[in-house]
Design a protein around this nucleic acid. Structure first.
Lengths: 109, 109
DNA sequence: ACCAGTACTTTGTATTGCAAAGTACCAAGC
DNA sequence: GCTTGGTACTTTGCAATACAAAGTACTGGT
């Protein structure tokens, strides 16, 4: 138990929501997503992001196509799926509900 | 990856915050805390709550005193410590920051 | 051919929420 | 005084996953 890493702790479980929010607008490959998360002060490292994308792809929430790159190896461009859109809506509702739950603890009993 | 348990996932890392928010107002024993979390739709089970309280006590965020009960074994009544108050303030700031970060993902790039 | 940059993958570790079983105390009924 | 049921706390084992670190692989420049 160490207060230095509570941000990391609090991030747990919401990264799926964040990734879905990002890819809902446009195709992205991992570095795009990583940059976007970094701008939002939610940086994750490769060892977190890549397995997460793979899990979400296996769950059918996102899909990808390969695209050649002029400056390196080909990239996986991810898009949200219809199922992903549906999940995103559910996750956003749960997120709103969770924030309200925590808000409700701001007063005694 | 299963959307059924995202609430459980999202709870991770914020339970410390929730418990501190609860005990900041008054001494509580585990069942009090459990009831309060349940009302806030954040129910946790014994196997989660008790080890969490022990970790927080070992971290110095909370302390407890024993009190006899007329209807069962003695109870551990937890109070927040000065350090816990300090941690609570930090956690609340981080929470606000996190919600803003997620909010910021609601629009493209 | 080699190297640097980029992109993706894999491995091992630590944390922790949870289910389930276990321990312990108390009061009521027989 | 023994059993039973309720309450309170503890322990064990498992599964999920964020992370660090190392690895693989493709490209273009020197």
């Amino acid at each position: 138990m160490n207060e230095e890493n509570f941000r990391s702790q609090m991030k747990k479980g919401i990264l799926e929501l964040c990734v879905l929010k990002i890819v809902q607008f446009q195709e992205c490959y991992a570095s795009n997503i990583s940059e976007r998360l970094k701008k939002a002060d939610l940086l994750v490292v490769e060892g977190t992001l890549y397995p997460l994308l793979t899990r979400m792809k296996n769950a059918g929430w996102i899909q990808y196509r390969w695209e050649e790159s002029k400056s390196g190896p080909p990239r996986k461009y991810y898009q949200i799926t219809d199922e992903g859109v549906s999940i995103l809506e559910k996750l956003e509702k749960e997120w709103d509900s969770l924030t309200q739950s925590i808000q409700s603890l701001n007063q005694p009993s």
